[in-house]
Design a protein around this nucleic acid. Structure first.
Lengths: 233, 233
DNA sequence: CGAACCCTTGATACGCTTCAACAAGAGTGG
DNA sequence: CCACTCTTGTTGAAGCGTATCAAGGGTTCG
């Protein structure tokens, strides 16, 4: 257990790059940033701790500053069924708070993590005087919509192999031809909406076909063209 | 063919209830509405006409005023694969335009339809002077995110029967215990991400179990409790 | 050392798709 | 009017894709 077993709400300063990552380019002015800083509060979560549950009244825009937080639903038997993993710094939920109603999902820290919480009431006030902030928030929400649209599309019209190929290619553009898994394979499987067993079989299958090379948590892409063909064909 | 074979861009006035439906409550002021009216342009689409295609640069927020427009992707062979049907008055795409990049999906009129287009550049200007509009847009986007989150969740953790039960119950709350299909069954199937054949079998199955009664395009729910049990269990 | 994970592998089962055939309207033209 | 075709929904048989269950190997850690 960490020293921070009880989630504490402290007004710690959040580093600038975090804001840049959340609000995108062009950067908001230092003026607005200061106001945001005053509004924001941070919360430390121990691994396994719950950030919020489905249905809980959403008063804050929530972001992950550092660490990994999983989004999903609690199963019937208290068990947590992971659907998506969010690595900081990134928004965790910018949609629920704008609407009267609760969070749509449950969030649970997969590692020790630091959360950033922005009371939506305060943000509403700020938006009135800082149009640029409104623009950044609209863009962030729009990006979320695009991502989710892509995810739904993939789920509806691609099989597991195609989804895996798509995921590998997306990761490769960030890093290079070597994809180093930052997550457990079971978390990757959850993101792809398949079981760990199926993921294992698919990786073996792609390896046998000579498209990739798997060594533990490091995957080397050997045949980009074939992978792209798989992903989009 | 209709009289409007060529999509025409005319600055027709859009009725008030449409704006109310798009922007939600509390209503924006008449002042802002007038400015929006000046900004907006409408486009008539014949059945089958294409509103926009995937990748096309998105300059407008797009809404359906009346009629039905399908969102999906063009298959390999020019064929259109339907993923979601949008009935007017409702937003068709409020996310793509905010981001540098194109539309995420293709949109095609399923019936004769009227589109409303708002140039995002103009909306950006308006947002600076009308904070209430910004708030309404944020809410609309947030609602879209919630809907998509729900959709992805359903796809990942519910089988076809559960999704159908969920859909029936959702429709029933709007209308009553009789659900009258406004769409072809194949469109419903597409929304549920199943084939028409499977939908037919599922309906028969639920009918045999005495949970519903199907007569053509009208479905009567006979056992709400059992359906809810199916949907959420 | 055993315990607790994580990943793998195999056998089997189930859900859904695909393909093919067919019935029931709706529109069309002889 | 009938024959024709087009569309929509239904039904059946077969097959693919993925989940589930069970077992075993590799680590890490107490």
């Amino acid at each position: 257990m960490d020293t921070a077993t009880a989630p504490t709400a402290v007004s710690t300063s959040v580093p600038f790059p975090v804001w840049a990552s959340l609000l995108g380019q062009p950067a908001v002015s230092g003026d607005e940033l200061l106001a945001l800083q005053r509004l924001a509060s941070t919360r430390r979560l121990a691994a396994g701790a719950t950030a919020f549950v489905r249905g809980q009244v959403a008063l804050n825009l929530v972001a992950v500053v550092s660490g990994v937080v999983g989004l999903g639903t609690r199963g019937d038997d208290q068990l947590f069924h992971l659907e998506r993993a969010v690595h900081g710094p990134q928004w965790l939920d910018i949609s629920s708070a704008w609407i009267c109603g609760g969070y749509a999902q449950q969030a649970q820290a997969l590692s020790a993590a630091v959360l950033l919480e922005l009371p939506v009431a305060g943000v509403r006030q700020m938006v009135k005087q800082h149009p640029l902030l409104a623009d950044r928030l609209l863009q962030a929400l729009a990006q979320t919509v695009q991502n989710l649209t892509g995810a739904t599309h993939d789920l509806m019209s691609k099989d597991a192999q195609k989804r895996l190929a798509t995921w590998l290619l997306q990761r490769s553009t960030d890093v290079g031809l070597d994809v180093a898994l930052k997550e457990r394979k079971r978390e990757l499987a959850a993101q792809l909406a398949i079981t760990p067993e199926t993921l294992s079989r698919l990786l073996r299958q792609l390896m046998s076909a000579g498209l990739i090379e798997v060594r533990g948590y490091s995957i080397k892409l050997l045949n980009l063209a074939a992978l792209q063909n798989l992903a989009h064909g």
